[in-house]
Amino acid sequence: MTAQDVRAPETRGAGDGGERAVRRARWARGVRLAVLAAFVVVFLIPVYVLLVTSFKPLTEADPSRAWALPETWTFEPWRVAWEKLAPGIANSVLLAVPGSLISAVLGSMNGYVLSKWRFPGADVVFTLFLFGMFIPYQGVMIPLVQLLVNLNELTGLNGVFYGGIPGLVLAHVVYGIPICTLIFRNYYVTIPDEIIEAARVDGAGMLRTYRSVVLPVSGPAFAVVVIWQFTALWNDFLFAVFLTGPQSWPTTVMLNNIAGAQTVPYSQQMAAALLASIPTMVVYVLLGRFFMRGLMAGALKG
């Protein structure tokens, strides 16, 4: 007997009662839709402001016109913002592309071993990794700066580790290990052990099994991790502000300098903010599905 059968007599008993329930359900759905739509408007207010302001000529920079559409649309703020921000964007590309790729490779190897080629104490190692995901980076920042300064001196490569992109990549890769390992591990757990075992029985070693069995199905996990790390590296401000100098400032630091200067008009600040957000927004729009999975991985383990 299904639930439907149980409820049937009741519905039959009160003919227009059922109709009323339907009407009430429709009404409730309408209210829900209206509230959700209202929140969409609230969520998009900052986007409206950014766009509208970024196309305004300086002559329209008046409080009374703050929320109005520009009377004459101009690309001038965008042009100026691009000129100011371009070096930062170049640095961010040099940071985020290699950084996210290295992170993904490391995460994949770690996740594989910790789920399919386990060694004694693998659980403890994994737990200790996880704590690294939650530490406030302020707690390692001063020693990290010191270490990178020492590396500069040791190698004689001035402005490479401390004050350079390579040092920033190093930091992001290392502190990205926990989350990348977690995502890959949780993905690999779903591969049946029998397949791995079969490869083992056939005499395949660890790397061979990885290459021929695990790697070919790793595409989605790579997408999740690369997108996650790309977004994190592109948007990072804390590490950048501690570890880089004027030559290696990424987008976020340059944007903050532009926005922090009282002399820069709002139109240019907002155009710069939009420019700085384009890469991650494009990734979000095109690959949002993978972005979501990365987000969930940070919260729901196992």
């Binding site: 998009l44 900052p46 926005a259 600040q269 710069a272 987000l295």
Partner: peptide, 27 residues
Amino acid sequence: FRAIYLFPMAISFVATGVVWRWLMNSG
């Protein structure tokens, strides 16, 4: 709906800070 509520997650706090500073101007 989901995509709209979630998109701020993809943007840096520094970029959103620019517009929120304007929105929360004390004048």
